[in-house]
Design a protein around this nucleic acid. Structure first.
Lengths: 224, 224
DNA sequence: TACACTAAACGTACGTTGTACGTACGGTGT
DNA sequence: ACACCGTACGTACAACGTACGTTTAGTGTA
């Protein structure tokens, strides 16, 4: 892995080091700051050396997305009631989103066809299957939960950006809004500005799970 | 608005024409193809002339997002039951997403603090209020529905990208997956590959709405 | 030990990007 | 007739992604 040159020791470049450096750069300075040149500089390497291990920038971004998804740990205990299993699966995604707040947007935006991306899908389908839903319904349930998880994350960063960008009037940023046109927004502005992502996330997730419980399915539930 | 020069007629540049051109360009060639130079060429104008009306590229993208949201028509009939009102509000967003399939990603990714972005929020809060939910719950409901709408759209384009990018084995693209590791994915591959975005969307929306109906609220419903 | 082969790092170069800055010009008010 | 000013234009620069050819260090074979 290491090779002597002159009297220094040079660590060989490899794909993993590149992807890791890219991830760290994104977390540190945001996705816009990422460029092949920056990554190369970070690794103290010539720009074009990266292309021996990565097909291009787009491929690098895909790799970052995949690496993040691969780090998602899914604790699935088949003994638990299926509602709990579904809940913890969605929360597992939520967890990585919290660990990589800036890079996770890539996961939401890009396709991830690698096994790392398929694994959560497999788990979701397995849970729905165990719960007694037929195949087609299982797929739809998986899609609905996935949509919610994606959207909640994205909505949250959008909201966070808004709160950062307009600290003009810290007390009531909606104050300049016409109360006649936006009465509810003005009235509820403190609730709108409040920031409790976990509770918000759980609220929506509870809605979906409880709706799933009310859905007809073949087996009664076999909770253990 | 028009000014004679030599014997031609020159239409003055303005912000609306720029934003419209950018939108059309994105719809035609994708968001990656958009550059200030391309937009300028589209309008037969020098690049820097754009900067008299738009602060920069980022501002232009924001403007595109806002323009799209502004085109969202929200038919809200207070006589309808609140579940129907909520449904049609979410569908209104879905509609613009269908009309601007490529640009709408900008709306999901960028903050929209302009009134066009607030208006749907106001409607959602109004509906939840009329339904009898308290303020804090209304905000959470709005956030959950928004998250789902965003996520469903984004998940759909991701899925579409995957289906486009791997027409390698048209019959069973998941065929090379290990059936031992991904049994459900392999078994349900035809359902996974099927494409009925509207039905999928409605399925998840029904889940949320029905869960909302089961939620406790002060007024019984006053359907009219 | 000598030599050929290979993989990986490198340097150069080209086209494209966003935009800062200075210039030219046409319409309007005096 | 002249000054003013908003708008369009052209030039210029730094940073970008990456195609392509060259160098170098390691590994096999003689």
């Amino acid at each position: 892995m290491t090779v002597g040159r002159q009297d220094e020791v040079r660590v060989l470049l490899n794909r993993d080091r590149i992807v890791r450096a890219a991830t760290e750069l994104i977390e540190r300075e945001g996705a816009d700051a990422l460029s092949m040149r920056r990554v190369a500089a970070e690794l103290d390497v010539a720009v074009m050396s990266l292309y021996n291990h990565v097909a291009g920038k787009a491929a690098l971004l895909d790799a970052v997305a995949e690496r993040i998804l691969a780090g998602m740990i899914i604790p699935d205990d088949p003994e638990l009631p299926w509602t709990e299993r579904a809940r913890s699966l969605v929360w597992a995604f939520r967890k990585v989103a919290h660990d990589y707040p800036r890079s996770v947007t890539l996961v939401l935006t890009r396709k991830v066809d690698a096994p790392s991306g398929i694994r959560p899908v497999e788990h979701a389908l397995a849970i729905a299957d165990d719960a007694g839903f037929d195949g087609e319904t299982s797929v739809r349930i998986m899609r609905a939960l996935l949509a919610y998880a994606i959207g909640a994350q994205l909505r949250e960063v959008s909201a966070a950006k808004m709160l950062d960008y307009l600290p003009a009037d810290r007390e009531n940023p909606f104050g300049l809004l016409d109360p006649a046109e936006f009465p509810h927004v003005v009235a509820l502005q403190q609730a709108l500005l409040s920031h409790d992502p976990e509770t918000d996330f759980e609220f929506g997730l509870d809605l979906l799970i409880s709706a799933l419980e009310a859905l007809p399915r073949s087996e009664p539930g076999r909770t253990s």
